[in-house]
Amino acid sequence: MSAPVFASGATKPGGERGVLLEARDVTMRFGGLTAVKQVSLQVHDGEIVGLIGPNGAGKTTFFNCLTGLYKPTSGQVTLRGDVLPPKPRDVVKAGVARTFQNIRLFHNMTAMENVMVGTYCRTKANVIDAIFRLPRHRREEKASTARAGELLAFVGLADKANTLSRNLPYGDQRRLEIARALATDPSLLLLDEPTAGMNPNETRDAEDLIFRIRDLGLAILVIEHDMRFIFNLCDRVLCLVQGEVLIDGTGDEVQNDPRVIEAYLGSPQAEAGD
């Protein structure tokens, strides 16, 4: 990587890490069901934060609240102190990008085109520019193509730029989704189960990739079930159970908390009583 790919989100060297994203008492109710209850979370610049919890704990719902897909019933999400706008596309523009639990690529577009869609929100060429091929269109098109090429190289898909995304192997699709999210030039990247369905080798590659993204100056919030992966990766881990924060601490603290083990495996008493 020659030129710096990312303009924003650089970590202040040596200085104290500022708060990037802050969720305060976020609650999401669907009718009578409270999927997320009073969850608070802080993500600092250049930090990797893990979000764990058993199935149905509300992790993805919480993600959707952060990215504008759901409007929280109550509570507030701020990015660098500014309240996040309500629409997903505005959230992206503000600097929060995401991937999906079940891959949602544009399947009949090439890898290159997928990534170039990510640059949409950072480009401005309008209908007139496009129809008459005005300088702004040509300049942006050139920049987007170059940028997408760099990002594909960054995630290791440089030689698959013209492959239709549906034809990529599973692991490559995951990486392409990350490249597409990076193309929106985010300062925070949300990854929803980035290693689901991967073999140990691929998981290691994903780990490496996430570290490299962090080194570019981005903060990362990651949902994952693979505990080894999470505890290797994360500076801090948040455990959600039934929509509520069970514990928020370092990897070691969370790993050794009996309540976390209980939440995943059930309590020994209950099993003894069966």
Partner: peptide, 17 residues
């Protein structure tokens, strides 16, 4: 590209800005 992205997956397109 935005148009085709909408055709392929509208929600993902919105979530990509």
């Amino acid at each position: 590209r935005g148009w085709v992205a909408i055709r392929e997956d509208e929600l993902a397109a919105e979530a990509m800005g």
